[in-house]
Simulated assay, not measured.
Amino acid sequence: MTSEKISVLYVDDEENNLVSFKAAFRIKYKVFTAISGTDALKILEEHPIVIIITDQRMPGMTGVDFLGQILEKYPDPMRILLTGYADMVAIVEAINKGKIFHYLTKPWNEDEVISVINAAYQKYLENKLLKETNDKLAVSNDQLEFMLRQRLLS
Rank of each mutant, 00 (worst) to 15 (best):
A40V: 08
E112P: 00
E112N: 08
I114V: 14
F25G: 03
L82C: 14
S154C: 01
Y29H: 04
T83P: 01
G63S: 08
K42T: 10
Y74I: 09
M147R: 09
T62R: 06
G63W: 02
Y124V: 06
L81R: 12
D87M: 04
I53Q: 03
L9Y: 03
V64Y: 02
F21E: 05
Q122S: 14
M61S: 07
K99E: 07
I100Q: 03
V113F: 13
L18I: 04
K22S: 14
E110L: 00
T105H: 08
A94Q: 03
L81Q: 13
S140C: 12
P77M: 09
Q69C: 07
E72R: 11
K106R: 08
E126D: 12
M78P: 00
I6D: 06
V19R: 13
D135E: 15
E45H: 12
E15V: 11
M88A: 06
E126Q: 12
G37T: 06
I51K: 03
Y29M: 06
P48M: 07
L125T: 07
A86F: 03
E72N: 12
I35E: 15
H102P: 01
V113D: 13
L67C: 10
I6H: 08
P107A: 12
M78C: 10
L81P: 05
K99M: 07
D13W: 05
D76A: 14
K106H: 02
R79K: 15
Q143Y: 09
A40K: 04
K5F: 09
D39I: 00
L82N: 05
N17T: 01
Q122M: 11
A138V: 14
I52L: 15
D76P: 00
M88E: 05
S3W: 02
G37H: 06
F146M: 13
D135S: 15
L153E: 14
E15M: 10
D111Q: 15
R26Q: 12
I35C: 12
S20F: 07
V64G: 02
I43L: 12
S154G: 14
Y124K: 04
I95H: 01
T62F: 01
A23L: 13
L130C: 02
G63L: 07
K42W: 00
P59I: 12
L104I: 11
Q143H: 13
A40I: 09
L153T: 08
R149S: 11
Y85N: 05
S7A: 15
V89T: 06
M88Q: 04
I100F: 05
K22C: 11
R149C: 04
T133P: 00
S154E: 12
N134H: 13
M61D: 05
S20R: 11
S3D: 09
M78H: 03
Q143C: 13
H102Q: 13
A138C: 08
V92T: 05
P59S: 15
G37R: 03
G63R: 02
G37V: 06
V8L: 10
L129R: 14
Y121V: 00
I114H: 02
L82I: 02
L125W: 01
